[in-house]
Design a protein around this nucleic acid. Structure first.
Lengths: 153, 153
DNA sequence: TTAAATAGTACTAAAATGGTCCTCTTTAAC
DNA sequence: GTTAAAGAGGACCATTTTAGTACTATTTAA
C-alpha cells in the first residue's frame, strides 16, 4: 500500500503548528489542544522529533518545544525517518546481502532503487511545501533510480 | 517507512518468472519451485494477480497461469494495486471528507498529493524495467503533485 | 520546596500481515 | 465414466506492527 503511518501524519500536523510559533517554545499540552490530538500522543511524537533533531526542547517549568530550524529546511523524508526509521520499500531494501532469494531473484534490487528514487523526491519536499501546497514539488526520477548499482558505487 | 509488503515483492518474482515463459502456461507448483517460494503462497499471489487482470489462468489438468499481456505493459503501480489495493500513503489519502481533523488540518491533502506523484511515477515503471534495471526510470514530480486540487478538478 | 514541564521506557489492545489449509470446481487423460 | 491435476475461493491462525496510554525519573522556574 506504500502506506505511511498515522503517527507520521500527526507529526506533520504538530510540526506545522510549531512552525507558526517562530522559535517560541510551545508545550506538548498546548500543541495537543491546537492540533486536536491526545496529549500523550503528542508527547510521544515530540520525543521522536527531538531524537531525530527536527525539534529542540527545554525541560522544566516554562519549558517546551520549538523547531530546530526553519520549516524550509525540514524535509518530508526527515519527518518520515524520524517517526518510522529509514524508508525501506521492501524488507531487503534496507540491508544488502540478507535476502534468502538473492540467488534466484530476477528483479534484484529494482524495488530498492525505486525506493531510492522516491526517497530522493521526498528529500526535496520541505515542511513549507507541505503547508503551502500551492506551488510545485520536485519530480523524483524512478527511471534514473533504476540505473545499476555500479554507477553509484 | 513507506514500506511495500513482502507479498508484493514476491509477486514481482512470480511475474518475472512468468515473463520468461512467453505465453506458455505454468502451474503454481512449477512457479513455486522456480522462485523458491512456498506453493500455497504462490497460489495466493496468483489468485490475486488473476483478479487484478495481470495474469490469466486455465483451470483443470494441464492448466496454469500466464501473463495477461506483455511485461512492458504491466506497471509497478498495477502490481502493488493487485496485492495491496489502491496505494494510499495515509489513512485519509484514500477517501475525501472522512478525516476528523480536517477543520484544523494545516497540511490538508499534502501527503495525498505526494502520494499521487509517487503513484504516477510507479505507473511509468514496467515489469520489463524491473527486470532489466539497467536503463533509467521515469521521474515522478512531487512538486507538481502538490499543485492545489482545483487544477485537477 | 513545589509545580510544570520534558525524557525514557514499558505496556496493552487492536489491526495488519504472512502463511497455511480445506473444500469446491474444472478439465485432460485414461 | 473415473481419476488426477490443476485453479477458485474462503477461512483460519500465528506473528508482527501500530496506536495509544501510563508510569517513573529528571529538570528548572517561581
Amino acid at each position: 500500500m506504500l502506506r505511511m503511518s498515522k503517527l507520521t501524519d500527526y507529526a506533520t500536523l504538530v510540526l506545522a503548528q510549531l512552525s507558526t510559533f517562530d522559535g517560541e517554545l510551545s508545550s506538548a499540552h498546548q500543541l495537543a489542544i491546537d492540533t486536536h490530538l491526545a496529549q500523550p500522543t503528542v508527547s510521544k511524537l515530540l520525543k521522536a522529533l527531538v531524537r531525530a533533531g527536527l525539534v529542540v526542547s527545554e525541560r522544566g517549568a516554562q519549558g517546551g518545544y520549538a523547531l530546530a530550524r526553519p520549516p524550509s529546511e525540514i524535509s518530508a523524508a526527515q519527518i518520515i525517518d524520524a517517526l518510522e526509521g529509514p524508508v525501506a520499500i521492501t524488507t531487503c531494501s534496507s540491508e544488502r546481502g540478507l535476502c534468502d532469494f538473492e540467488s534466484v531473484c530476477r528483479v534484484g534490487g529494482a524495488w530498492q532503487r525505486i525506493n531510492a528514487g522516491i526517497r530522493q523526491a521526498l528529500m526535496e519536499v520541505s515542511l513549507t511545501d507541505l503547508q503551502h501546497h500551492a506551488h510545485p514539488l520536485p519530480r523524483p526520477n524512478l527511471r534514473e533510480a533504476l540505473i545499476p548499482p555500479s554507477v553509484f558505487q
